[in-house]
Design a protein around this nucleic acid. Structure first.
Lengths: 220, 220
DNA sequence: TTGATAAATGACTCGGGGGTCATTAGATTG
DNA sequence: CAATCTAATGACCCCCGAGTCATTTATCAA
């Protein structure tokens, strides 16, 4: 047993990923302000000082965390919807139910919560989230809606607002679970919500229906 | 000019309200962790030490702030909806549009954001918000929906999930504005969203419609 | 094998802000 | 008009965590 255990080893390229991974957990668990860099370091199997070789400041590390998670979950979302060709009525239920299932792990909602929490202190953080997640999804969806309108499948109206009609309840439902857990008597079952809301909103969007409401002032 | 200005005066009963008022602004502006009690004190025209005569700790003050705002905006919400007797189709547009207008000042959304931000650190905070705001609104609304179902106005389905279908887009829209402002090309106009979504969701809920969708599996 | 390089360490500084407390001085009462 | 009470002050303590840096030591190149 001459030289078995080195006190540590160099991992110039492996470290950043390990640190970010650890930081994700710590930030999600405690929020930005309450997260301690020493905790991050410990969890990464490293010492605090080491962090500063890879990240200049706590904020930098936080930004890296956000971008990491965003990038991770991005292609999945984008592929799922972008690869889709067909009637909106086919896509919406699939989209919502997939969302309901996919958010079960709590990684994305937790990060969304973080972003909501810290975006006032770091406005660029909101921008990252907006540009990479929200804007893409909304753009994609409202584009599909506009197409469906052109094909005469969907009633006249603002496509972006329609996009909110579609995804809003799911977003709210996820937030509800993230904040209040399943304990509340009003906690929605996400899959039920997705199924039922898809049905409901599609009935509302479709041109075929003819509910004859009192006010016939058409668009906008 | 013998005794014009006293250095300060006693305001045993006025102080707490003034302090809370100041704290609302500071907490909303910076979030819990970043808010400095010295700032709160200054804004309240007082010195930091004075705060501790009325609130034992920063957390206590924060809780008081939340409860204050909640209490303030509560009767307004409750009256508006509870006093209402009539068809759901009449209530929903009014409710959503009022929400769209009322949230313009940014007080409630900002606090909601705060609660979202800090609820992991202070779980009881989430409970306060849940019990006093979310639960009441949801209970009220799903009750009205159940009534409407009993009268044959609304299709079968989970009333709570329907409630999410109604309010979700508005909640999401408000959050959007709170987080990203009006700068984004996807920022919804809240009044437009309220109007259009009310129309849409009511078409989706109504039994009269007969969109004849592929799958006739009725309830659930 | 042996320098040279720089990754990693850990003990350190430092500032900021939450919380305290002896003192001051408006109010209050008789 | 005292004498008393206590709201309010402001100087203070002190912890804690972000960020630093001289030193150690694994790794690489020659």
């Amino acid at each position: 047993m001459t030289e078995t255990k080195p006190k540590w080893n160099r991992r110039k390229d492996a470290r950043p990923a390990e640190i970010i991974e650890a930081a994700v957990d710590v930030f999600i668990a405690h929020g930005f302000a309450a997260a301690k860099l020493s905790d991050v370091a410990t969890r990464a199997g490293v010492v605090k000082g080491t962090l500063y070789r890879y990240f200049d400041t706590k904020e930098d590390l936080f930004r890296a965390v956000v971008q990491h998670v965003v990038a991770t979950n991005l292609q999945a979302i984008e592929q799922a919807a972008q690869a889709f060709r067909g009637a909106l009525a086919e896509l919406v239920p699939v989209l919502l139910i997939r969302a309901a299932e996919g958010m079960g792990d709590g990684r994305v909602p937790a990060l969304a919560r973080m972003v909501i929490a810290e975006s006032r202190a770091f406005p660029d953080l909101a921008r990252i989230w907006h540009d990479n997640v929200v804007s893409r999804i909304l753009g994609l969806l409202s584009g599909l809606i506009a197409d469906a309108q052109a094909r005469g499948e969907v009633r006249a109206g603002d496509p972006t607002a329609y996009a909110f009609s579609i995804v809003g309840p799911m977003v709210t439902g996820m937030l509800f679970h993230e904040l209040f857990g399943a304990a509340s008597p009003h906690a929605p079952n996400l899959v039920t919500l997705a199924t039922q809301h898809a049905e409901t909103v599609l009935r509302g969007l479709s041109v075929k229906s003819d509910t004859r409401r009192s006010d016939p002032s058409a668009s906008r």
